[in-house]
Simulated assay, not measured.
Amino acid sequence: MRAALKVLASRLLGGCVVLLIVAVMVFSLVHLASGDPIAVLLGDQATAADIAQVRAQYGLDRPLATQFFLWMGQVVQGNLGMSIFMQQPVAEVLWSRAEPTLMLATLSVLIATLIGVPCGVLAAVWRGSRTDQALSAVAMCAASVPSFWMGLILIRIFAVQLGWLPASGYGPPDAGLLEKLRHMILPSAVLGILNSALIIRFTRASMLDTLGEDYVRTARAKGLSEPAVIVRHVLRNALIPIVTVIGLTMALMIGGTVVTETVFNLPGVGGLVVRAVLRRDYPVIQGTLLVVAFIYVLINFMIDFLYTVIDPRIREAR
Rank of each mutant, 00 (worst) to 15 (best):
S129R: 00
F305G: 12
Q161V: 05
A197H: 01
F264I: 02
L186N: 03
G270S: 13
K222M: 01
I240Q: 12
M72Y: 04
P63A: 02
V30W: 08
I111H: 09
S108P: 06
V231Q: 09
C16D: 10
V284G: 01
C16N: 06
V245W: 08
N79F: 01
S10K: 15
L152H: 12
I200K: 05
V269C: 14
T203K: 13
H183Y: 12
H233A: 03
V259L: 13
A48K: 08
V292N: 02
L70K: 03
L289I: 15
P146H: 13
F305Y: 15
F148N: 04
A33C: 13
I310D: 11
L248E: 14
A143T: 08
I254C: 06
V259W: 10
L152I: 13
L306N: 14
V234C: 06
Y58I: 05
A52S: 12
R217Q: 14
Q87A: 13
V138G: 01
V125S: 09
P241D: 04
L162W: 14
L208R: 02
G116W: 01
A9Q: 07
K6W: 11
P100V: 04
T210V: 15
A4K: 00
V229A: 10
L80G: 00
M1C: 06
A134V: 10
T260N: 02
L224P: 08
L102T: 05
I314V: 15
A276W: 05
V18Y: 12
Q286W: 00
N237R: 00
L107Q: 00
L12F: 06
F27P: 03
V263W: 04
